Simulated assay, not measured.
Amino acid sequence: MGGLTADPAFRSMTFVVIDFEATTPTGYPSQPIEIAVLALRYEDEGWQETGRSTSLIRPPAFAPVTPAGTAQTGLTAAQLSVAPTPTEALGGVDRRFSGDTPYLLVAHHAATEANIIYNQREHCPTLARTNLLDTILLAKHCIPGLVNYRLDTLLTHFEISQPANRHRATADVDVTAQVFRRLITLANDRGRVANLAALVKVAGRTAKCNLAAQDGLFELTPVAGEVAAEPT
């Protein structure tokens, strides 16, 4: 057993893989239309799933789903018109976070998820204060030299099957969780990451709500220096 997965701080952490689908209206930030989360803990038996949740989210009138969005996700304006509001959907996820449990969010290109969460923070204040791990940053550390670090590239590298409904939140959370677990195995077995603190240094991103409220500090930045991320 390597140092990372033996670290008590790592074992006490709940890792919540998160993915949004969103619309991007001109002149406005991205608006979520679907969310999925998958909670994982590392125990003696290995990785254990401790919870999951998914919900559609009704977008505001200024951010309708576009034909291109429907082509990518399969979600239609009719479906979303009767979906839960952001208060209902994001509030429901937020209430799943216990105040006594340490959490880290896990996302591929975490800046995307973090920006959506920050802009919706009135509906999910606990989620908005939860720091993140970026699987792109972790992959660059563990697998240097790939042509790029898009999610599909990592799925091919790890021989993980493409889900039929790729670009839906639940499917993307499931494959991101698989990639995360493979990366942790590499980090652990090769001694690339010694403990949770080192993992955060390599791949951590600070939630915007946890940054000092000063000019210029509201851009999401990597914990350990500026590393360019790539979209999915």
Rank of each mutant, 00 (worst) to 15 (best):
T112R: 09
P86F: 04
T126D: 08
T126K: 15
T87S: 06
I116Y: 02
P86R: 00
E113Y: 04
A89P: 01
G91D: 00
T112S: 13
R95M: 10
G99Q: 09
H109Y: 15
T112V: 14
A107Q: 13
T112I: 15
T101P: 08
R121M: 06
C124T: 00
A89W: 03
P86E: 02
C124W: 03
A110F: 02
H109T: 12
R96P: 00
P125Q: 05
A107M: 13
A89R: 02
F97N: 10
N115I: 07
T85L: 04
T126V: 14
Y103M: 11
R95T: 12
V93S: 04
E88M: 13
L90E: 02
P125D: 05
H109F: 15
A114G: 07
E88C: 06
R96Q: 14
P86D: 00
D100L: 12
G92F: 05
P125V: 09
V93I: 15
L105E: 08
Q120Y: 02
T87L: 09
T101C: 13
Y118T: 06
G91C: 03
A89V: 07
N119L: 04
G99K: 08
E88Y: 03
C124S: 07
L105R: 11
L104Y: 12
R95W: 04
Y118D: 11
T87I: 01
Y103K: 08
L90H: 03
A83K: 01
R96T: 12
N119W: 04
E122M: 03
E122I: 05
P86T: 03
L105Y: 13
D100W: 09
V106P: 11
G92L: 05
H109I: 10
T126M: 11
A83P: 03
H108I: 14
L104R: 14
S98N: 11
C124K: 00
N119K: 06
D94A: 11
T112E: 10
G91Q: 00
T101S: 13
H108Y: 13
V93Y: 03
N115E: 14
D100S: 15
F97T: 14
Q120H: 05
T87Y: 02
Y118M: 04
G92K: 09
A110D: 01
T87E: 10
Q120C: 12
D94E: 11
A83H: 01
G92M: 07
N119G: 00
T101V: 15
